[in-house]
């Protein structure tokens, strides 16, 4: 059974995937800019975190860098904290 990475065009394939995900990320910037509310902006940031993990995983294959999986792991762990901080801080101590 041949895996994808044996193919000569595997690098370009992974780069294309990473590029595609990057395009969706750039498109998402529009939502951050438009808003209209802070919640919408945070939602876009939330999606960015996941997309970032996806791009890093694709790049780890494209560049043959195992260390990038660690970066993706760290990003996956920490991306949610901004969201939690947002909800807690915007709620304030009153709730």
């Amino acid at each position: 059974m041949q895996t994808l990475n044996a193919m000569p065009w595997a690098t370009n394939f992974w780069l294309a995937i990473a590029g595609l995900l990057l395009v969706t990320l750039v498109a998402g910037l529009w939502r951050i800019w438009r808003g209209p509310t802070a919640t919408d902006r945070m939602l876009a940031a939330q999606l960015f975190g996941t997309t970032g993990v996806g791009i890093l995983l694709a790049l780890s294959q494209a560049m043959q860098q195992v260390a990038l999986i660690d970066v993706a792991l760290v990003l996956a762990l920490l991306a949610v904290i901004a969201m939690v901080a947002f909800v807690k801080r915007m709620q304030g101590p009153s709730s």
Binding site: A45, G49, G52, V71, V74, L75, L78, A79, I81, A82, A85
Partner: peptide
């Protein structure tokens, strides 16, 4: 990834 995307935010 840890500081910029996580803590600074």
């Amino acid at each position: 990834a840890a500081i910029g995307a996580g803590l600074t935010g």
